[in-house]
Amino acid sequence: MTFLQRWRERGADQCWPHDEETSAATNPVLRMTARAVPIAETQLRTPVVVTGKVTSVRVQPRAGVPTLDATIVDETGRLVVTFLGRRHIGGIEPGRKIVVEGVIGDARGRAQMLNPIYRLL
């Protein structure tokens, strides 16, 4: 990733390369992102790491089953990430970039990842 790309995606205050960030060995987030694959190339029912931008978040009201659906988009496709038992997760909001790790299943014809491990980028 060039400096320019980083600058575009993260903003000025995050684009300077810091030691702990640059070293994949010490930074768990970077270790995760390094394994990320494009959404279009993911396979069902296999553990996978995907990174992308949250474009929408679905909030379930109190009366319903507590669920948080977030849609993640990269250049190749989109994926719905569902956090069961949560109504709100700080930081998961439209416009944020995240990396998630989990298993993708088929939810009525749509790709859905249930309760993934996630890191905010």
């Binding site: 929408s56 679905r58 909030v59 379930q60 009201p61 109190r62 009366a63 109504r87 439209p94 416009g95």
Partner: peptide
């Protein structure tokens, strides 16, 4: 984004007939 957050919180609190609210990015 702040207004959207407030809306989301209010939505959750009021429990509007179990209708989910989707907040879409609109940069």
């Amino acid at each position: 984004m702040r207004a959207a957050d407030e809306l989301a919180q209010e939505w959750t609190r009021l429990g509007l007939s179990r209708v989910p609210l989707e907040i879409v990015e609109c940069a």
